[in-house]
Design a protein around this nucleic acid. Structure first.
Lengths: 364, 364
DNA sequence: ATGAAAGCGCTAACAC
DNA sequence: GTGTTAGCGCTTTCAT
């Protein structure tokens, strides 16, 4: 491993001395308490004193350590964010929204990714608790039966789930079951009877399960043929073999309902490699409404959920929980459901019409 | 604002008492120091003592506070990550890589987004320094003339830039200038002579400037017509008007070289809305190589950079810097350049050939 | 408007 | 192997 001479960290050769509040106090001829007030309740101070302290602090590059202040005050003003991955834009947008909301409220965030792994979720929670975050926002693999959530309830740490739906946990999401039902109905209205549902490993996503079950219920209600389930090896990309096999069967699907937009996008690519045109030869739709999906040609038909806002609202909810100490007011009904909508792109054919609709692109 | 009854945080009604190391020590009939050792140097302890302590700690849900430990030991084992936005998958991937590397080394990360705003960059750095992060990884709007970087050098805090290139700062990136030259050469080889360069606001991205300059230099070298620069209002989406105006001119471009893949993708959508086919009527290429761009139909021709690995390497470099105290070894040459490659999709026509190449999709 | 004193939770140094 | 002591940087009474 290479090593580095010190000029990479500026013009300073020796390790920088971080001044403490006592040194500043001495240099400004006041007590440490007064320096503390200069940063936390400046209005209490004599303006001259305040100015002198801030000047001295500036000269010394002094800012109060949040470590010391956290320890003394018992409040870290830090939240934890735990997401399956940032590589799925849906999570990136959501947790960016949460960070934004937190920052506006004067909170900082620690973040970690878990790769849909329950063990890593648990480790992540433990680590954040060690850091004494005041609350967490997370998306877990499975909201019921989650060691990570057990740990949180056990320790009494406030938290809010994003994307996961649960009556037992504070959560902000869309109604996945209903949304999937709506999508199947929408497909059926366009003459799509033989539908296959494409997902990642069901065991690692309660959302995928809810969506599958919603789709299944709706085909039952409408008297359509049963849904064929095509589980893929991961959540972000279709397996070519699995897809090819399904299409080679005696009753190939007319439409692929994909559990998320990443799967849908890769499915479209694979279908085109197989010489099939979307939507003329086969229809495809997704779930999520990630910005990018609207830029595909044709644009992806999908269930759009307000990811950024979901993050913001989850964080706002968490912050409001942190304000509560001994309250007996009625609790809101969980899960909190945000509105979704089916966005019609051009990847689903209308079996009654000859040509697919045209679609466009616009800035977000 | 709504309020919440306490059962949302588990079965505990009153605010949880977080046990301290002293209570555990007392309950286990040992000194606080021994409890500390049980967690930090368990091998030093008598196995029986260790077991007793861990049992008691488990019963009380005790884990050592990193606040207390950070204060006493002077080390937070935390890094700061500062990105323009997580909504651009390129940054999401990179900083996910950095977080992963940090976690594997036993470090936690705080993260914030700055929206390409120098003021927010500076605030972010200050906030992270307040938290006493041991080092930072950041992508700034402009690596030269950055108040955020000034603050870091001034305080002697170790940091590494990602994506930004600078001889004055530790940085990990690709050679943007050369990559843009290569891309123009590649375009020229395919008969593309009239090239327009599409970017966001140049003042908010030194990468975009380097890429533009590289493109300009290459057209000069090859004796091609000058590059037309089309600056857009933001970094992620083309303005329809700007694009339309450029195409309506007396000498419309044959090819659009976009400063990043998000711009390229939205440009393609807009062109199609204008009735133009890519690449038959006009060619388009991007820069970044985000996974999604390969899924477009046709796949986007772009300069692919190793985003995830860039994050990992930036973090590895930072961690190695943290290990150095008073070293005089020769420093590596900055910026560190990672390999890039031109990925040929189907969005650039070969002016000498009748039909565009076919392209495929594969899992990442 | 300011100061003095105590202590948050932890660990490093030293003693035994 | 384990205990004792001191103190990291800060804020919060309480006093003046």
């Amino acid at each position: 491993m290479k090593t580095f001479s010190s000029h990479w960290v500026g013009t300073v050769t020796s390790a920088r001395h971080t001044p403490s509040i006592r040194e500043i106090a001495q240099a400004a001829s006041v007590s440490p308490a007064t320096v503390s007030r200069a940063f936390n309740q400046p209005e209490l101070l004599n303006p001259d004193t305040l100015a002198r302290i801030l000047a001295v602090a500036g000269q010394h590059d002094f800012r109060p350590s949040r470590i010391g202040s956290s320890l003394r005050s018992g409040s870290t003003r830090t939240l934890g964010l735990i997401a399956p991955t940032l590589s799925n834009p849906v999570f990136a947008e959501c947790f960016e929204g949460a960070e934004q909301q937190a920052r506006e409220a004067g909170y900082s965030v620690m973040l970690t990714a878990t790769a849909y792994d329950a063990q890593r979720e648990c480790d992540a929670v433990r680590n954040m608790l060690d850091h004494r975050v005041e609350g967490l926002i997370l998306t877990v693999a499975n909201a019921h039966d989650s060691p990570a959530l057990d740990l949180l309830t056990q320790t009494g740490t406030p938290y809010v789930l994003a994307y996961n739906e649960s009556p037992r946990h504070p959560s902000v999401s869309v109604d996945n079951h209903q949304a999937a039902m709506d999508m199947v109905q929408w497909l059926a209205q366009r003459g799509q009877r033989h539908i296959a549902f494409v997902s990642g490993p069901l065991s690692a996503s309660d959302r995928a399960r809810s969506r599958l079950h919603g789709a299944q219920e709706q085909v039952r209600r409408q008297g359509l043929p049963g849904i064929v389930h095509l589980p893929m090896e991961n959540h972000t990309c279709c397996d070519a073999d699995t897809l090819r096999t399904a299409l080679a069967g005696p009753q190939p699907p007319q439409a692929l309902f994909c559990s998320n937009d990443l799967l849908a996008t890769s499915a479209i690519g694979l279908l085109q490699q197989l010489g099939l045109t979307v939507p003329n030869d086969i229809s495809v739709c997704g779930f999520d409404g990630m910005a990018f999906a609207a830029m595909l040609q044709p644009a992806l038909t999908t269930v759009s959920q307000p990811s950024h806002d979901m993050g913001r609202q989850a964080c706002a909810l968490l912050l409001s929980m942190l304000g509560i100490t001994h309250d007996t007011a009625p609790a809101p009904a969980f899960p909190i459901r945000l509105p979704y909508r089916i966005v019609s792109g051009g990847t689903v054919a209308d079996a009654d019409l000859p040509s697919p609709p045209l679609t466009g692109v616009s800035c977000s």
